[in-house]
Structure formats: structure tokens, C-alpha cells
Simulated scan of single mutants.
Amino acid sequence: MEKIKLVVAGTELVFEPNQTAYNKFINEMSMDNKVAPATNYLNRIVASESKEALVGIISRPGAALQIVGKVNEIYAPELEIEVKN
């Protein structure tokens, strides 16, 4: 998989998502636990050159979930599924 480059609040962040990290994120997430799994996932997939910048950005309220949403929109786009009878 290619690297995903985002500019968040004026700072470039590079992520390297993979299926293992993605699956672990999905498995850790629950109705009452979303922020910690999102933060852990981002820390697992952030490129080494972006680690320090990520720490400052994900300390903002809601940032981790917004970034995860964008990364996963690119990494795991929704499939077009059609029901046939």
C-alpha cells in the first residue's frame, strides 16, 4: 500500500496503513470506546518522520477520529454492493 499524506492544521502527516493495524483498530472499537482505539491506530500507522507532529495534533479534541476517518476513507473505501433477487 502506498503512503497516505495528509495536511492537518497546516502540518503534513504521513501514514502507512496496513491490514493488520486496520483489523486491530476495528476489533478494538466499541460503542463506548472510540477515541483510544483511533489514537492507538494512528500511532501504529504513522510514518516515523510524522510521529512527533502527530502527537501534538491528536491532543486536540476530536482530531484522532477525524484523521482516522480520512485515512480509512482512502485506505478502505466503501464497496459498491448491490442486492439482486
Rank of each mutant, 00 (worst) to 15 (best):
I81N: 05
E78M: 06
E12R: 12
E73Y: 09
K70N: 12
N72P: 05
M1N: 09
V68T: 12
G69P: 06
M1I: 09
Y22I: 08
V35H: 00
K70R: 11
N43H: 14
G10D: 10
V8M: 05
I45F: 06
M29N: 02
Q66R: 08
I74F: 04
A38Q: 04
G62T: 00
E78C: 01
M1Y: 08
V55P: 01
A36E: 13
M1L: 09
Q19N: 10
E2G: 09
V55F: 04
N27K: 14
R60T: 07
R60P: 00
I74R: 02
V8I: 15
L54P: 03
I26P: 03
G56Y: 02
E82N: 14
A38C: 12
V55T: 13
K5G: 01
M31P: 05
S48Q: 14
G62F: 00
E49L: 05
S50Q: 03
K34T: 10
M29G: 02
V68M: 08
I26N: 01
K24V: 14
M29Y: 04
E80K: 13
K84I: 15
A76D: 10
E28Q: 15
E73M: 14
A38T: 09
L79E: 15
G56W: 07
T20M: 12
N27H: 10
R60I: 02
V35I: 15
K84P: 01
F25P: 07
D32C: 00
K34F: 02
K34I: 13
K24T: 13
V14Q: 03
Q66W: 00
Q66L: 09
P77M: 03
V68Q: 06
T11V: 07
E82M: 09
V14A: 05
